[in-house]
Simulated scan of single mutants.
Amino acid sequence: MSGYVILVDFLLKPGSKAEFRRAIDANAKASCRAEPGCRQFDVVEPRDDPDRIVLYEIYDDRAAFEAHLKTPHLAAFEAASNHLVTKKTVIAGDLACEGSKE
């Protein structure tokens, strides 16, 4: 199984989660709908931290992720959300095992 995985951990300004979620949800949906190389884009709310959002994204390869970085929906997300974020951590990796039900 191959794939390029991106994990993004956002620490948000207190009270900004609803506004951030509107922006990131639109970006996630547009990524899956408009980008053939985007296989998965999940938005996760950790239960123990109300000011944190984690993204789990899978792309076919690094080139597909690089294409994602140039999309209008990502630019719109960044413009709408940069002021809501206090810290952003990105981890890139290779998909080593996909735990599916197959």
Rank of each mutant, 00 (worst) to 15 (best):
G3A: 11
G3R: 08
G3I: 05
Y4N: 03
Y4H: 12
V5N: 01
V5Y: 05
V5I: 14
D9G: 03
F10P: 09
F10E: 06
F10K: 05
L11A: 13
L11Q: 15
L12F: 03
K13D: 08
K13L: 14
A18D: 14
E19S: 12
E19G: 09
R21I: 06
A23I: 04
I24N: 08
I24H: 10
A26Y: 02
A26C: 04
A28Y: 02
K29F: 10
K29P: 01
A30E: 06
A30C: 01
C32I: 07
R33I: 02
R33D: 10
A34E: 14
A34F: 11
G37R: 10
C38L: 03
C38V: 02
R39M: 13
R39D: 11
Q40S: 15
F41C: 10
F41E: 13
D42K: 07
D42M: 15
V44W: 09
E45C: 07
D49F: 00
P50K: 13
P50G: 15
R52A: 13
I53S: 05
I53D: 04
L55Y: 12
L55N: 05
Y56V: 05
Y56G: 08
E57W: 00
E57I: 00
I58P: 06
I58W: 04
D60Q: 10
D60I: 04
D60S: 13
D60N: 09
D60K: 10
D61T: 03
R62E: 14
R62A: 12
A64K: 00
A64P: 00
A67C: 02
A67M: 02
H68K: 09
H68L: 12
H68D: 09
K70Q: 15
T71G: 04
P72V: 02
H73A: 07
H73S: 06
L74G: 04
A75Q: 09
E78A: 14
S81W: 07
N82W: 06
H83T: 11
H83Q: 06
L84R: 09
L84M: 15
V85G: 07
V85D: 04
V85N: 13
K87G: 10
T89D: 13
V90Y: 01
I91W: 03
A92F: 14
G93C: 05
D94S: 10
L95T: 03
E98R: 15
G99L: 14
E102V: 07
E102R: 14
